[in-house]
């Protein structure tokens, strides 16, 4: 149960920070997402993001910042195992599943549905 409470809180905090950036700065959504991903990469290599996941469970892995962390951890693992080539192959080894899935699902949804006007 504690895991779910912490997931809610940590996930909520990442989203609330994004909301503050949206309302209080000139940043558009793309700026925020890019900042989060790059931030995830940097926090990950410094070993900080691992600790955030220990606290926040899926609240830390589900936001896009967790995708940056997954990229970085994959890169590190491949460097450890394969050397220099791991710099290039590591990211997508670990985090490629999401990209591949979104490609396929996006294509399928486009075949099935049409955009509807906003109410």
């Amino acid at each position: 149960m504690k895991a779910y409470v912490m997931t809610f809180i940590v996930g909520g905090i990442f989203c609330a920070i994004a909301q503050i950036l949206l309302n209080k700065t000139q940043m558009k959504t793309a700026h925020i997402l890019v900042t989060y991903v790059v931030g995830g990469v940097v926090l990950s290599v410094l070993g900080i993001y691992e600790k955030i996941i220990d606290i926040g469970y899926a609240g830390a892995t589900t936001p896009i910042i967790g995708w940056g962390h997954a990229l970085m951890q994959g890169t590190i693992a491949q460097i450890e195992a394969e050397g220099l080539i791991g710099v290039f192959t590591g990211g997508l080894t670990a985090a490629g599943g999401g990209v591949a899935a979104v490609l396929l699902f996006g294509f399928i949804m486009a075949l099935l549905f049409n955009p509807k006007t906003k109410k």
């Binding site: 996930g11 909520g12 990442f14 989203c15 609330a16 920070i17 994004a18 909301q19 503050i20 950036l21 949206l22 959504t29 925020i32 997402l33 989060y36 589900t62 936001p63 896009i64 910042i65 967790g66 995708w67 999401g98 979104v102 490609l103 699902f105 996006g106 294509f107 949804m109 486009a110 549905f113 049409n114 955009p115």
Partner: peptide
């Protein structure tokens, strides 16, 4: 309704890929 709340989770990433795929069909 949610703004950052549905933007930051990975579901928002999916939304940002699927919505233009639908739109430009």
């Amino acid at each position: 309704f949610a703004g950052g709340g549905s933007l930051v989770p990975i579901t928002g990433f999916a939304n940002s890929v699927v919505s233009p795929a639908l739109e430009f069909k």
